[in-house]
């Protein structure tokens, strides 16, 4: 494996881990539910995307690479849709959250 490719992988994975850490920090620090949803969806998906990007050159075959990309797309879709559902539920107050 060429040095350049290794460097690229290390940078990408490290940056991905950084975004995961920031996401966790945001989830703890941000003051309200909606703002926390921002941190959750955006940083997580970007973090996972960068980690997967960094792993791509090290996979045994292209099928595994496609599988990882598929996992990323699934997480993206689930994350964005899930955050919309959580926000909607909180806004409409039809869950048990907003009862005093």
């Amino acid at each position: 494996m060429s040095l350049l490719l290794t460097l690229f992988s290390v940078l990408s994975i490290a940056l991905g881990a950084f975004f995961f850490l920031v996401g966790t920090l945001g989830l703890i620090r941000l003051p309200d539910l909606f703002s926390r949803l921002h941190a959750l969806t955006k940083t997580d998906n970007l973090g996972l995307g960068l980690v997967i990007l960094g792993l791509l050159p090290w996979l045994p075959d292209p099928f595994t690479a496609l599988k990882l990309v598929l996992i990323w797309l699934l997480v993206l879709l689930a994350g964005a849709t899930g955050s919309h559902l959580i926000a909607k539920r909180a806004l409409r107050g039809d869950g048990e959250d907003l009862t005093p």
Partner: peptide, 26 residues
């Protein structure tokens, strides 16, 4: 469209009534 709004910087699609989307912004 709703899913992509949540990926744009600072915006999050929070609710939808017919054609009107409520977007939460940082």
């Amino acid at each position: 469209f709703l899913d992509c709004i949540s990926l744009l910087p600072g915006s999050l699609s929070a609710d939808r009534h017919q054609d009107v989307i409520h977007v939460h912004l940082l």
